[in-house]
Nucleic acid binder design. Structure first.
Lengths: 333, 333
DNA sequence: TAGAATACTGTTAGCGCTAACACACCGATT
DNA sequence: AATCGGTGTGTTAGCGCTAACAGTATTCTA
């Protein structure tokens, strides 16, 4: 790479001062039409492009966002990231991506490095840090949006999924289909989403005059094998189950495999529902009825919220709750 | 955000010059042990962190990489990205992610913006740009690694998948299993990977004394529906087919569905193979025999190659060919 | 026609940092 | 005693850019 063309080169070649070039480039301040044309010509000729580094140092705007996720190769976060990058691109910003790999130490490290790089804003997904430490680190940023993480006692914009409504949709759908004896594969106890979805299940049952007390329910790992084992146990303990509500699509795929190995037909013997609507959900046999969490849209809206904060003068902070959508397929028609 | 602590604040508080602080921070140049300790104390007390922006401007190193992919939400690219970020993190670099959404114009735009941001190196996946234009744009970067794209007549480091070997593995495996009458769902004609895999198929058949001429083969879209349609047509035209070799796992899933709807048992009537080993491959029924493309590892190795270039003085450029691995599952035992 | 407003351009300073050099001080060498 | 080389520190300049102010020349107002 030969030396980059600088604003000084352009100024010299066009026979004007640095500021005149700067004014043309940034399109602010008055410049006569003839001068502007001459400068633009020289710029095109030399292929001048302003250094964002130097610019950022003086303007304190880097046109740069940070996105921190546990793991990009998780389709959920990849979808969010794509949404964020879409908005960033449309507004001439670039996106730093950082994986935390679920480690709070790494999370802290990457947040600091993003601060050192002077990002204009930060989108932090599913933070695993303690409230107090998180609040402190976030002070280093001008604009922040949290996704899937509520920070108590702090005015930070937040985007959340309405898991409770999603849980309710799923159960109501099964009840409408005439299934009364419903079993639950609840996923890991530690999951906040799981607890919220469970609350939604309970509410739907209560509305239908059913109690949650004697309902067959079991925790399981949020994976295919977790669903397989869990469903086997549940179906053996409660052979009268007509439907299985699963924590997410992976668990539901496991449940599907369990039904297959136990000779239970899906959906005629047992209906199955998942959650998230990952690609896989539509591709297994039978395809899964599930609750779609609009990950791309979450990314879009979080990024828009962030850009709003970046450009706004006031400190007002908006929150957002995204509604999941019931997707009916053959596993629970 | 209150004003950041600068090196001047530290220098003043410690009663030394800026350079002494700089020397302590960067651990270069001689500093007496007592001074070093005092400076370190002040740094810790004030919470000073050097501005990467200012540093980058003068050192011409931003500790920043760019990764350009068609679409992060494609698991293949997400896996690569994760590998790259892993290496970057380990070496204190940050990663700019850019999606091109398959648009050459957008690709050009993001490449320019990465140049403007002074990235130390670039990893470009599956570039859709013309050779000539690409070569020109890449001149703006000190270090470049291309993934899944060969650039003729230019010395650019490249990481490629050995698709031909992969294609060969798959067919050889089927032949070993005694299947002689093999059908091919070749994917889109435009795919370079597809052509290479096809060459591998042909070589394996030739080695077994079989000609490729009268072999049932058909192009199809690289998707589930493409595979479904293609397999239906192929199986109807050639009812004696014992195995289907599919362009990728999605096509294979479609083929699986086609066999199911035609009442052909997999693998007893028809064996099926995919390519890529996406998550889905292990989760359908029966699970797919496929060829694993190690996307995470590709990311790792591309990033290491890039870091090597960044730190090396010479202009030497290494290439890399990654071997796909045959994964045998129930769809073609 | 004086004075003010406007349009255009230039100069200066500085964002936060480090490279390069300058300098003072020490003990060791000739 | 003069010279050398090392060690620790400071000073200066400048990376590439823009904010803020300072001119000019021109036009407008009363």
């Amino acid at each position: 790479m030969s030396r980059r063309v600088t604003i000084a080169d352009v100024a010299a070649a066009a026979g004007v001062s640095l500021m005149t070039v700067s004014r043309v480039v940034n399109n602010n301040g008055p410049v006569s039409e003839t001068t502007r044309q001459r400068v633009l010509e020289v710029i095109a000729e030399l292929g001048y492009r302003p250094s964002e580094l130097a610019r950022g140092l003086v303007t304190r705007r880097t046109r740069t966002l940070g996105v921190v996720v546990p793991d990009v190769s998780n389709p959920f976060f990849a979808g969010i990231l794509r949404g964020v990058e879409q908005v960033a691109y449309a507004q001439n910003h670039n996106v730093f991506l950082c994986n935390t790999e679920e480690s709070p130490e790494r999370e802290l490290t990457v947040l600091q490095s993003l601060e050192d790089k002077h990002v204009d804003g930060l989108i932090l997904c599913s933070s695993r840090m303690e409230d107090e430490q998180l609040a402190k680190v976030l002070e280093g940023f001008d604009a922040v949006v949290l996704i899937n993480r509520f920070l108590h006692g702090s005015r930070v914009a937040t985007v959340l999924v309405d898991d409770q409504a999603g849980g309710r949709h799923v159960v109501e759908h099964l009840l409408r289909g005439g299934r009364r004896r419903i079993g639950f594969l609840d996923g890991p106890l530690s999951s906040q989403s799981g607890r919220l979805r469970k609350a939604g299940h309970r509410a739907a049952l209560a509305d239908a005059g059913l109690s949650y007390e004697d309902v067959p329910a079991i925790d399981c790992a949020p994976s295919v094998s977790g669903g397989l084992e869990g469903a086997r146990r549940l179906l053996r303990q409660h052979p009268d189950i007509e439907a299985l509500v699963c924590y997410n699509d992976l668990v539901a795929v496991g449940a599907l495999q369990a039904c297959f190995s136990l000779g239970r037909k899906v959906p005629s013997d047992v209906a199955i529902t998942g959650f998230d609507d990952i690609e896989l959900a539509a591709l297994v046999h039978p395809p899964l009825t599930t609750c779609r969490v609009p990950r791309y849209e979450i990314g879009l809206r979080a990024a828009r919220l962030l850009m709003q904060q970046i450009h706004a003068d006031d400190e007002d902070v908006e929150d957002l709750v995204v509604q999941p959508e019931l997707i009916v397929r053959a596993s629970a028609p």
